[in-house]
Design a protein around this nucleic acid. Structure first.
Length: 208
DNA sequence: ATAATGATTCGCT
DNA sequence: GCGAATCATTATG
């Protein structure tokens, strides 16, 4: 039985390192009485106050961003484009608005549940290869904003696994932000090399 | 109170 | 590849 990632994993101050460490871990949800899980294969780091792409840039504190200022180990879920529920892991100490966006997972269990929620076959990589896609497949939504990830009793938690070797991790610019801002070029997007369940197009993928 | 916009996805060409 | 869908959040009056 793998252990749930402890608070000490999340309260570290290097959110970029945590983004890489999260690759290969198992994200588990127990929502609506159904369990699903998948391997985290793609992440992005966001870090206030200096990161202009972060919602809490300049330590901007609003109803929405206040979750990012919590102590590491809770979920930050928000709506994007009015439809999509995007899931982040809050990191660092209370008062530091750091978070890691989970962008894609490789489904492992609860495949039938995911198929029903997504209305497609789990054989298609498209079922979970995007930040709004896997949240729908795994039942994550806005009301999970702010909940703890530190217990197996939580509807969402992350199980520890061996680290992905650095040589098998690729990085690049984050997705979906203005190229005019210098920080949009920071290589703070990470994914597992040769994993076909990531959202990056135009490469040859192999199964893990 | 109102207007602008986005850490996206999907369907059509 | 392109553009519409769609609404919570935010800034501004």
């Amino acid at each position: 039985m793998p252990k749930v990632l402890p608070k000490s994993f999340y309260t570290r101050h290097d959110v970029v390192q945590i983004s890489k460490d999260l690759l290969g871990k198992i994200l588990v949800t127990n929502i609506e009485g159904k369990q699903t899980s998948g391997i985290i294969v793609e992440t992005e780091a966001y870090r206030a106050p200096d990161d202009k792409a972060c919602h809490a840039y300049g330590d901007k504190f609003t109803t929405r961003t206040k979750t990012m200022f919590e102590e590491g180990g809770v979920a930050y879920v928000y709506i994007c484009y009015g439809i999509h529920h995007l899931f982040n892991v809050v990191t660092a100490d209370k008062g530091l608005a750091h978070a890691v966006l989970i962008r894609a997972v490789q489904p492992t269990t609860g495949l039938v549940v995911m198929e029903n929620r997504r209305n497609m076959s789990s054989k298609q990589k498209e079922i979970c290869n995007g930040p709004g896609k896997f949240t729908r497949a795994m039942g994550i939504f806005k009301s999970h904003n702010g909940i703890s990830l530190l217990s197996r009793k939580s509807p969402i938690y992350i199980e520890d696994e061996d680290r992905i070797p650095e040589v098998n991790i690729l990085s690049g610019p984050r997705v979906g932000m203005s190229t005019a801002e210098e920080c949009s070029n920071w290589p703070w997007r990470f994914w597992i090399k040769n994993n076909r369940y990531t959202s990056k197009p135009g490469q040859v993928w192999y199964d893990l």
